[in-house]
Every structure is written in structure tokens, then in C-alpha cells.
Computed example of a mutant assay.
Amino acid sequence: MKRLENYTLGFIGLGLMGRPMCLNLHQAGARLIVHNRSPEAAKQLERAGILSVATPAEVARSADIILLMVADTPAVEQVLFGPSGLVEGLRENGLIIDMGTTAVGPTREFAKRLKQHGVDYVDAPVSGGEIGAINGTLTIMAGGEEQAIQRALPLFDVLGSRFTHVGDIGAGQIAKAANQVIVGLNIGAVAEALTLARQAGADPAKVREALMGGFASSRILEVHGQRMIDGDFAPGGKITTQHKDLRQALELAADYHLELPATRLNAELYQTLIDQGLGDLDHSALIKVLKGE
């Protein structure tokens, strides 16, 4: 028996991450009703037997549990409360799970507003990139009430290989902000290290191989270090997304009168690439700033 064969789920946001996540839920037996801002992405999934609808409200009328994987905080608000948004069709005792990276303050406000409609809200951002989304090996960090988390767990078991209930509403997004600070700075560190190796006359591939055996070893060095060496910047996680996440982390820090100087510099480097029209490249393309390309 498939794990989710008795579930009817809504899914909104079918980009790099959302599409494979949706397909994994479908393959686990769930019935999916999907919506995407660009209709063509949703229509493509109809070939797999997934129903697409024209508005978020139609998704809400068809499913008690709805997952969101949209671009940013304004997009989440639009899907929830905008014209033909989810709030127009929500069922009482429904559950909405935001699996994108959304600002903490608005996340808490969205949860309060939805509670007035008898709907639970869980913030459950993920780490692992497109590879993790495809393989169902995402790391999921969640905030929300225990009963809502328990309802979401069967879905998380399909989508990820590691799950942590971090705390109350917003705690998942706090964890994701911390994650993105580490990811952004780690990409910067690998980019600087490999650029230094090349300029000093060593083979970056051999340097990476040596470093993988010591304390400098990391998933970033493994995956993104190889991308930097190969010059393969097809997006698994876009520069624009990384920059947005770093900006949100800086805004969260400012709320608590905290300065993150390395994070601020890292965000500025990503902004340089965006200004050069390279925002749709993989975030490992940060090395292009150092190489002067």
C-alpha cells in the first residue's frame, strides 16, 4: 500500500523545488490538486494524472491540507489572502504548510489570521536544494503546534530524510534563516579558497580533493565546489533566491539589534551578480565575482 493513498492534498508553487516535491507526493499515492502562477507548469503535471486548477481558492475547496512552495513572502501573502486566494475557499480544520523561505514576522501574522478561520499553519522550510527535492531527502525544519505537526508528518516522511520540530510558529523560518547564513558564507568560503588555489598555481580539483578529507570538508565543498571547478551553474538554487534569503536573515537580525557583517558582505556579492544579469544562475556562481567574470 502506498503511504499517502488516502490523502487529498493541495500544492501551490511548481518551480525548481515544488515540482519534484509534488511528484513525490503523487508517487506516494496522494491525490494532488495544484496551482501555479504560470499555468503551463501546472498543465504539464496533468500528464502524470495530477489535477490543475486556475486559482488558490479552488485548491482550498478541494483539499484539507495544502502545501506552499512559492518564491517569497509577498507571494505567500498573495496566495493566502489575495484575490481568489486560499482564504476564499478554506475548509474549517484545514492545514496549510509553508515549505518555502518566508520572513518570520509575516509567518506569525499569517498563522494568526488563519487561526481565525479555524485553519492551522505550519512553517516548514527545507534545505537540500533541487537534488534533495527530487530524491525526497530534504532536511525539514518546522514551527507550529504539536497537533498540526503530527498531521504533517506523513507528508514530511515522503519529502525528506531528516525532520526537526524546532518550536512554535516562526521557529522553522528562524532555523532556515540560520541555514541560509551558513550556506551563503560557506559558498563564499569555497569560492575564495578555490580561486586562491587557482591563482597560486595549484589545480583546484586536486585542492578540493585534498580538503574533502579534513575539517574543511562540507556538502558545499562537495557539490558546489565541483560546480565551480566545472563551471556548471545550471540552477539548483538560484542566486536571486539566495540573496532574498540573506536579506531576510539580515532583516531578522535587525529586529533584534544584531549586526551580521559577514552575511551583509555575502549578500552584497550576490547583489553584484544580480546587477550583472546573472541572478538566474546557481548560487555557486558566486565564484564569478572573485574571478572578475
Rank of each mutant, 00 (worst) to 15 (best):
A48N: 14
A48M: 13
A48Y: 15
A48L: 14
G49S: 04
G49Q: 05
I50C: 06
I50F: 01
I50R: 02
I50P: 00
I50H: 00
I50L: 08
L51Q: 13
L51P: 07
L51F: 12
S52C: 10
S52M: 05
S52T: 06
V53I: 12
V53F: 07
V53Y: 08
A54R: 13
A54C: 10
A54M: 10
A54V: 09
A54H: 10
A54T: 11
T55H: 12
T55A: 11
T55I: 12
T55R: 11
T55K: 11
P56T: 06
P56M: 05
P56V: 02
A57W: 00
A57V: 09
A57Y: 04
A57M: 09
A60W: 02
A60I: 01
A60L: 08
A60D: 04
R61C: 10
R61A: 11
R61D: 07
R61H: 14
S62M: 11
S62D: 10
S62P: 06
A63K: 08
A63S: 14
A63G: 13
D64A: 11
D64S: 12
I65K: 09
I65D: 03
I65C: 12
I65H: 09
I65M: 14
I65L: 14
I65E: 07
I66N: 05
I66D: 03
I66T: 06
L67A: 09
L67E: 03
L67C: 13
L68M: 10
L68D: 02
L68C: 05
L68G: 05
M69W: 04
M69N: 06
M69Y: 08
M69E: 04
M69D: 05
V70A: 00
V70M: 01
V70D: 01
V70Q: 00
V70E: 00
A71V: 15
A71L: 14
A71Q: 15
A71I: 15
D72G: 10
D72K: 05
D72M: 08
D72I: 08
T73L: 00
T73K: 02
T73Q: 01
P74G: 02
P74E: 07
A75Y: 07
A75H: 08
V76W: 02
V76R: 01
E77Y: 00
E77H: 07
Q78N: 14
Q78E: 15
Q78S: 15
V79E: 08
V79A: 10
V79R: 01
V79H: 06
